[in-house]
Design a protein around this nucleic acid. Structure first.
Lengths: 227, 227
DNA sequence: CATTTGCAAGAGCAGTGCTCTCGATATGGC
DNA sequence: GCCATATCGAGAGCACTGCTCTTGCAAATG
């Protein structure tokens, strides 16, 4: 390993360290991440951080990508360990919810309102689609197995927009089922977000997991999963 | 009208003016509302604003309450002008979505992630329930009319939590239907939020209204509305 | 050994929320 | 009408933020 590679490795380690501290700050302090505070925690000058991230937004982007990957990982692993498509759906949903409860501010970063003045760069769109692709794969598995009841084809102009989308990502799924899967995905994300963001306070407080499971099954049914 | 009342009226007008400018800033600048910038726009010192709002959070709270009221108003008016429960549901949903598209940052304020370090005070819980109450009333109307198909009763611990909630707000609805209405509400809010927050980019872009209508009908079906 | 490159530190700018003090003005009791 | 009181606006100031620029040091390169 040449010296240049060593330099690059040290740099990568430093970058990871900054992200780690930033995540810790995000978890404890809340969403208004302070680059200076991160630098203080690392015992370095704030200006030194700019050697690794050109701006606070760029650091946030890195955290967003990591968050998409983290929730995607947990959901994929949970789904892989389950049996039937419905069980995979439930496992992935509960895994995502538990990750969100454990990392509320990171969840808010990706599925909450965009950060003030922050425009998501292109680097984030690919990891963002990961969970939706997973859900599509689960539905596709059920569809191939023939357990999805036949549905009326889609009507409406948006159906035409879904067709090329379907061809690219879910070549073996009818557009109608894609639309239903997206809708179910939004439903699950909404259920997680609105529990997390406090819209359930003064309502269900004890058995939130049970209520989420109820919604998760409703979404699964919408996406065509039975059993 | 006594002088004291006049003073109070002037104070109320000033308070409204500050809120109006703050909303304008929210609409143009984004979510990171600057109290100083608002003060500058009003031609007054930043410290003077603190005579009317003890903190930036308090101003935000006022804006949140106004936003809940605004979206509640539009939804209620739209529903009132419609005929059947399903039509009311659709009208309320589309009205909420259009309001959200017209006031994205205000929508993010109430249905997005909570603002950094901001804890919603009790003043906001009552206006927050307004839309959900409207939807509950629509479903209750359909239920009384007998057009809602019978469903299995709820099982699970969260069902017990819904019972007192149901007794308070929807005395004539079975808990199962309440849970379904809440789930449908989350689904609709999620559909609006994730369209607004860009999760639909690179997907459906032309006929977003059509796709929302599709989801809105799915949610209505979940809540028991047919027709 | 000399030079280029990468990195960290510090000062500094413009902006923020918020507090405090100090005058000006208006209100209410006598 | 006069004076005590309450209310309000302005300004200075504190601690903080993101970000830039310059300076100096250390390591890799020739």
């Amino acid at each position: 390993m040449s010296a240049a590679n060593l330099r690059a490795r040290v740099r990568a380690e430093m970058t990871e360290e900054i992200k780690a501290v930033a995540k810790r700050h995000l978890a404890t302090e809340g969403a208004n991440l302070s680059l200076r505070a991160v630098a203080r925690d690392l015992g370095m000058a704030s200006s030194a951080v700019y050697r690794y991230f050109a701006s606070r937004d760029e650091l946030l982007t890195a955290l967003i990508i990591d968050a998409y990957d983290a929730v995607g990982d947990t959901a994929e692993q949970a789904a892989a360990a389950a049996g039937s498509p419905l069980q995979k759906w439930l496992a992935a949903g509960h895994a995502a919810r538990e990750w969100a409860l454990a990392n509320p501010h990171e969840w808010a970063l990706i599925y909450g309102s965009p950060v003030p003045g922050y425009a998501a760069p292109k680097d984030t769109v690919e990891p963002a689609t990961r969970v939706l692709l997973l859900l599509g794969a689960i539905v596709a598995e059920a569809y191939r197995a023939g357990t999805v009841a036949e549905r009326e084809p889609l009507t409406g102009r948006f159906a035409e927009e879904i067709v090329p989308l379907a061809a690219t990502y879910y070549p073996d799924l009818p557009p109608r089922l894609i639309a239903d899967t997206i809708a179910a995905f939004f439903q699950v994300c909404g259920a997680i977000s609105y529990e997390l963001f406090g819209q359930l306070n003064n309502g269900i407080v004890e058995d939130r997991r049970g209520f989420f499971d109820y919604q998760l099954r409703a979404a699964a049914k919408l996406a065509g999963l039975t059993g």
